[in-house]
Amino acid sequence: MTPPDQATLHRAITTPNLAPPGGLSDGHGRPAGRRFWVYRNNVAVSLREALRTGFPAVASLIGEQNFSTVARTYAQENPPDSPLLMLYGAGFPAFLDGFEPLAHIRYLGDVARLEHAMRRAYHAADSAAICSGTLRAIALKTLMDSSANLAPATTIVRSVWPVHAIRAYALDPSNPKPAATPQNVLITRPDFDPVATPLPAGGAEFVEALARGATFAEAHDQAAATASGFDPAFTLGLLLDGAAIASLNMKNGNY
């Protein structure tokens, strides 16, 4: 019998119900049998647990049993492409969007998107941040002509669902029940723990424009085009509280 190579072992570990490869024994000349399933089980359970750790709100929304099923299916079709399991599951939100048995929970993919974005923010690079005092010391005209470098942890998750409220309620039922309002969410990391905050209309456009390198004036115009009368003060306050503005690029020098 040809000894099993790693392609054969890999197939046997990742394919449900496939017989264990030959050439493996129990140390006494008897076929390895169920001893081989230790590996299959370790792989399946550890990948499921990695997803469980990364997507607690999704697990809470669909229940542990459903989560096990969907996580196992995802892991079989999408094994990690690197040993960095901290960010495993980047494709899980899109997978949930297309997962027929849970199609009736239409917001599930967006909740997963928010959870994964929080996880990325947790591991994002550290950054300096300017404080509100610094910003207040700059003349408004000068600020409006400046652009910002946002901290690497800063992200926007857009949704047509009240995704922030759904996540918060799923993680802690003492939070308010979600109202039927779409929510775009700003994620910042003031110190080590990411903070998610729902944005007012135009807020996502404002932050995304800044992230693309627009000046504050341009970002304001783009936000106002979506939400007439957009007042940047609240969103700017969230960015400052979230240590999200690493530095400013001003016409005559950086800050």
Binding site: Q6, A7, L9, H10, I13, T14, Y39, N42, V43, S46, L47, A50, P79, P80, D81, S82, P83, L85
Partner: peptide
């Protein structure tokens, strides 16, 4: 633990 780019998260 890795075969053709897929990481299996076990010591095989």
């Amino acid at each position: 633990s890795t075969h053709e780019g897929a990481f299996l998260n076990d010591l095989l």
